[in-house]
Simulated assay, not measured.
Amino acid sequence: MKRTRLKWDGDAALRGTRTGAVRGLRLATEHVLQVSRARVPIEEATLERSGTATVDEQALTGAVSYDTPYAVRQHEELNYRHDAGRSAKYLEGPLTEEADAVGKIIAAQLRRSLRG
Rank of each mutant, 00 (worst) to 15 (best):
P94N: 08
A101C: 04
G10K: 14
R15N: 11
G85Y: 05
L95D: 04
E77Y: 08
R111N: 13
Q58A: 10
L6P: 00
V102A: 06
L14E: 13
P41S: 08
V64H: 00
A45S: 14
G51V: 09
Q58S: 08
V35Q: 10
D56R: 02
P94L: 08
L25Q: 06
A84V: 13
A38R: 15
V40L: 11
G51M: 08
V72M: 07
K7P: 04
A28G: 11
N79W: 14
L27Q: 10
Y66W: 14
A59N: 15
R26P: 10
A107G: 13
K7T: 13
I42E: 05
I105R: 00
T4Q: 15
R23Y: 11
A13M: 15
A12Y: 08
L114S: 07
A108Y: 00
A63H: 02
R86E: 01
A13W: 12
A38W: 12
I105M: 13
L95A: 15
R112V: 02
L78N: 03
K89S: 05
M1Q: 09
E98R: 10
V22A: 14
R115V: 05
E57D: 05
T52C: 02
S50F: 06
D67S: 07
V64L: 07
L114P: 03
G62M: 00
R3P: 03
N79S: 13
Q109E: 15
Y70T: 06
G116E: 05
Y80H: 09
V64Y: 02
V64Q: 03
R5K: 11
L27D: 13
